[in-house]
């Protein structure tokens, strides 16, 4: 179903549940992968995905703007949940959010469901070496292929900052993968 159609169903109280089901059907997979890339562990990603849908359902009535607002709105909820979880998880170690990648890389290496020697694993480890916000920008642009204008609405960062971050992220990954 098209996003425009979903939005129409969501704005009418009588069809809202049907619209929400369509929304879930369309966005569960991309949002799960977005969350998983941010928090690495499957159990945590599963938990955050469900929490994200609860928040989306609660806030759906307050969503303003056209259908083009739907995707950035969902991604913004998911992103904020991820960043809050990472902050909370490492807060007691007095670790800044920007440095959590190193710890995530450790949990990545010890995950049973990951083939740590594959080239994809090396690529993910290189990603985890980036500062958290740079990693977020890279993921949204590279994997989700979102336009900078949309990433700007999700992250609250200016488009120029996003472009610079993406450029540095690519450069750093290339360096790490060439080693």
């Amino acid at each position: 179903m098209e996003t425009k159609e979903i939005m129409e169903l969501l704005t009418d109280g009588a069809t809202r549940e049907r619209g929400f089901a369509a929304l879930v059907d369309t966005y569960t997979e991309p949002l799960y992968w977005h969350i998983r890339r941010m928090v690495v562990r499957h159990d945590e990603a599963q938990d955050l995905l469900q929490e994200m849908w609860v928040r989306a359902w609660r806030g759906i009535g307050k969503l303003r703007g056209g259908s083009q607002e739907l995707r950035p709105w969902l991604y913004a909820i998911a992103t904020n949940l991820c960043l809050s979880r990472l902050r909370r998880r490492y807060m007691w170690r007095l670790m800044a959010l920007e440095d959590v990648g190193r710890k995530l890389a450790e949990s990545f290496e010890t995950s049973a469901d990951i083939d740590a020697d594959s080239i994809e694993a090396r690529f993910q480890k290189a990603l985890l070496a980036l500062p958290t916000k740079q990693r977020l920008v890279f993921n949204l642009r590279y994997y989700d292929e979102l336009p900078y204008a949309e990433i700007s609405r999700i992250t609250g960062m200016s488009e120029n900052t996003l472009k610079t971050d993406y450029h540095y992220a690519q450069k750093r990954i290339r360096e790490l993968m060439t080693l």
Binding site: F20, T28, Q46, L49, W53
Partner: peptide, 9 residues
């Protein structure tokens, strides 16, 4: 996951 999310309503 989709089923769980839809049950949220």
């Amino acid at each position: 996951a989709k089923q769980r999310a839809t049950n949220v309503c």
